[in-house]
Design a protein around this nucleic acid. Structure first.
Lengths: 289, 289
DNA sequence: TGGAATCTGCAACATTTTTTCCAACTGTTC
DNA sequence: GAACAGTTGGAAAAAATGTTGCAGATTCCA
């Protein structure tokens, strides 16, 4: 990871100055500031998020100072104006999961730079890194409520059906392996022998369907989800977009943006979620725990 | 953690509406939106931080749309203007991501209390943590040479056979999906219709077999590996021990100790390796890169 | 193919937000 | 207690940001 330039000197505000450096500088100059400006300094150090998100007027009100004082404060710190200082406070918020897609892309770009070194081992390292990021990400994105609802549906379901095509299929295969371990009747809708239609007809209103599908969405999966929903079954959807063709029918929807390297998307995050559902069900089952 | 109000009804934007509800509403209305507005919807869902922190002009630029379209998008969602919608995106940032902090704290508590607290979310966190460790581990354990050899075998092989049973099956399913993308004829030995024996008979000396098996080792997998080796095929083995029943026949052996939580073992590391093999092959194939 | 309806982008407009300026104030020194 | 230097608050100016109207483009339907 690229480390910022040393930057031992403290005084001039760099365009890309980070919050830590700014805070240091505030502390350094604190004694030389006037009363009002010291008051502001305290507030700024204590409420960085307010500085990042609110307008001068709102901040001034909260800090109990007139707006102009805030501008003077920023200028006292050698910024051209308040806005410039505000940027520094916004940066860390923006990079809080820096739209995740960016990070994954960053990994890909990294690879491009090292065009020369492209042995399999490098790919392994990249997949591992990308997967780790994806794992971090789903913890931020998924809520306990979602998971609770999904497990509830599985617990209540008389039988569970699982469907996924192509790349997503391994996830379905895993669920078809794991769920029966909790004595939950589970059926993998594999379309074997072209009997998909017949398999779907078995779905009853008190059943649940788990569907996994990522762009480009498999036609068959979408059709099954729609029909299952029409038959009154609960539907748990794992997909990469809320606006995917199958999301609209979901009783519970999980958005998974899995890692991608060289156009090959991983299944790490999806499988982690599948596993969580399986264990969640196991813990709520008679034999479980 | 305070659970959001049920909010089964979907339409009017509440002043205190949270991001999740907004995202849901976007998804609901997606189909009714014009092209440009759909384009914006995607961008908004993918870049929530940009929406929260940047100005209309900047966001518009990044999304590749005119500024006015953004305002119209907000209005299409029943907001009085862009600013009102922006508030919704800022809220989660304002409080230093309290929900995430809560979750981590919850996880820590869980660990401390060990087995007591057992919501599904805690399992997710544990799986993610455990998987991350596993990913780190395989990078240390696997050598570039091993990977190079394995990929060599795949490149040279006339056809590739893949076998795995039960828990490991998803890994095989993934390979059966991914390898043909490099124009490598691949066959999944699934034993469908009890024809495992017949499937194995197709294996030729210039073929390769990839076998995945973990303790407790599936009988069928061991038998197939042995027969494939006897027929002169190269064998790539992914297993958890060098002394597993299938390791002795391996041309290349990968030792994977996958993550385990509550007795449920993950497939993360195995899949990562599988993916690496697939990409490694793709890079060496006529069509690939 | 023609016409209606809708969508789109530009540019003018209205509003909000930031910044500057100046008069009043405070505290200090002689 | 007067003069001065520095500080302060508010109002006005300047800048930026958000919003809307309209004409042209596009799509949809007959």
């Amino acid at each position: 990871m690229a480390v910022a330039k040393p930057k031992a000197k403290t005084s001039e505000p760099d365009a890309a100055e980070n919050l830590a450096a700014l805070r240091t500088r505030i502390a350094e100059r604190y004694d030389g500031l006037s009363n009002r400006l010291q008051q502001i300094a305290k507030f700024v150090l204590d409420h960085p998020n307010d500085i990042a998100l609110e307008t001068v007027v709102v901040i001034a009100e909260r800090a109990g100072v007139p707006p102009s004082a805030l501008i003077r404060f920023a200028q006292a710190l050698d910024y051209s104006g308040f806005r410039e200082m505000q940027r520094v406070f916004q940066a860390p918020l923006a990079s809080r999961s820096p739209s995740y897609a960016e990070r994954v892309r960053g990994l890909a770009l990294d690879r491009a730079e090292q065009e020369e070194e492209d042995g399999p081992y490098h790919f392994l390292a990249r997949f591992c890194a990308a997967s780790a990021v994806a794992l971090e990400h789903i913890q931020e994105v998924l809520t306990p409520e979602q998971l609770g609802q999904a497990v509830d549906l599985l617990v209540k379901a008389r039988q569970v059906y699982v469907v996924a095509q192509r790349r997503s299929f391994p996830v379905a295969a895993y669920l078809a392996y794991a769920l029966p371990h909790s004595e939950k009747p589970t059926h993998l809708l594999d379309g074997l022998g072209g009997m998909l239609d017949e398999q779907v007809r078995s779905i009853q209103p008190d059943d649940a369907l788990i569907a996994i599908s990522f762009s480009p969405y498999a036609r068959e999966t979408a059709a099954i989800v729609e029909r299952a929903a029409a038959r009154g079954a609960s539907v748990i959807v794992i997909s990469d977009s809320m606006v995917s063709p199958i999301s609209r029918f979901a009783s519970v929807f999980f958005e998974i943006k899995d890692a991608e390297v060289q156009g090959f998307r991983s299944l790490t995050a999806s499988l982690c979620l599948a596993q969580t559902l399986a264990v969640g069900l196991a813990m709520r089952s008679p034999g479980g725990k």
